[in-house]
């Protein structure tokens, strides 16, 4: 009896739980590779965080503190008012509203159009879809500055100057990089899913909205982050197309801190940095909220399925 019990226990698979007690107390030796890895991570963290912390330091300083040499990291007086006075200088909250509206609509346009185009190229067999895909792929490598002039002329001749149309409309015509990513991602989804849905009577629109969108959440979340950030940070297009201060975006407002061409006085760097820190918050929040999907999206791009 005893022997049988012992035998049963021996056959039972080991429990899938974390070791407790003495196992946890056992010290893992710090190998050279681990130390090197931590050192590298620390170095990278420092190089990435130092500029941000330095921004915060300047944002809290008085004008006199900023130019003191050797530079002091901690302000002699913490001037929290810079976070109120700086944004007020550029009508921050009005520009924030403008930027939000433009960025949200542009992001929707870029993601929706690119997803649809990517789906069509990957899942619908039509003549020339491969050629279309290569055309989109090639256009990734055309520098934006090359297309700026023709697009400008197009909008100028359409009387769209000093409106938000030139900042929003182009995004609805697809982003070549996003179309490329979408096509690759859709190729990784098994065809059998579409086939099953079609047997059940679903068309492409239903397959796209009901099946593909949930399945490709990491992809379009990644696109959303990238598109929102691109629109949020865009400086050149608002500069070129907008003439009325009431329609300006935050990127133009931030640039106004820098003053003019040899106009003299140094910029109010403390106001500039304080406002810039606030300017960074929305895309940063979006990234943190969606970072899990962002990582999955990047990780899944290499896979394909037939």
């Amino acid at each position: 009896m005893t022997s049988a019990v012992t035998t049963d226990a021996a056959r039972r698979p080991a429990p899938l739980t974390m070791p407790t007690g003495p196992a946890l107390q056992r010290k893992v030796p710090l190998s050279v590779s681990r130390i090197a890895w931590y050192a590298l991570c620390t170095l990278l963290s420092v190089t990435m965080l130092t500029p941000l912390l330095w921004m915060l330091s300047i944002a809290l300083k008085t004008n006199g503190d900023i130019i003191s040499l050797p530079p002091q990291f901690f302000p002699s007086t913490f001037t929290w008012r810079n976070f109120v006075d700086g944004p007020r200088e550029v009508h921050f909250y009005r520009l924030l509203g403008n930027t939000f509206v433009i960025a949200l609509i542009s992001t929707f346009g870029a993601v929706a159009s690119s997803m649809l185009a990517g789906y069509a190229i990957a899942r619908i067999d039509f003549k020339g879809n491969r050629a279309l895909f290569y055309l989109f792929t090639f256009s990734i490598f055309v520098p934006g500055i090359v297309t700026l002039i023709p697009i400008q002329r197009l909008f100028f001749s359409a009387n769209a100057i000093d409106t938000w149309y030139p900042l929003i409309l182009p995004s609805f015509f697809g982003n070549p990089l996003f179309i490329f990513l979408a096509r690759q991602f859709f190729l990784s989804v098994p065809r059998s899913i579409d086939d099953s849905a079609m047997i059940d009577g679903a068309g492409h629109w239903r397959i796209f909205t009901r099946l593909m969108l949930p399945l490709t959440k990491p992809l379009w979340m990644t696109m959303t982050i990238l598109a929102f950030q691109a629109s949020w940070n865009d400086f050149l297009n608002p500069l070129v197309y907008l003439n009325s201060p009431s329609k300006y975006t935050l990127s133009l407002g931030m640039a106004s801190f820098l003053g003019g061409l040899n106009s003299g006085a140094s910029p109010e760097y403390n106001y500039y940095m304080a406002s810039n820190l606030l300017f960074m918050i929305p895309p940063l929040m979006l990234f943190f909220l969606a970072q899990r999907h962002f990582m999955m999206g990047l990780g899944a791009l290499g896979m394909t399925s037939k």
Binding site: I105, N243, S246
Partner: peptide
């Protein structure tokens, strides 16, 4: 958002 767009898309 629509109000914002209308405001911003009114041109000169």
């Amino acid at each position: 958002i629509s109000a914002g767009v209308l405001a911003g898309c009114g041109g000169q």
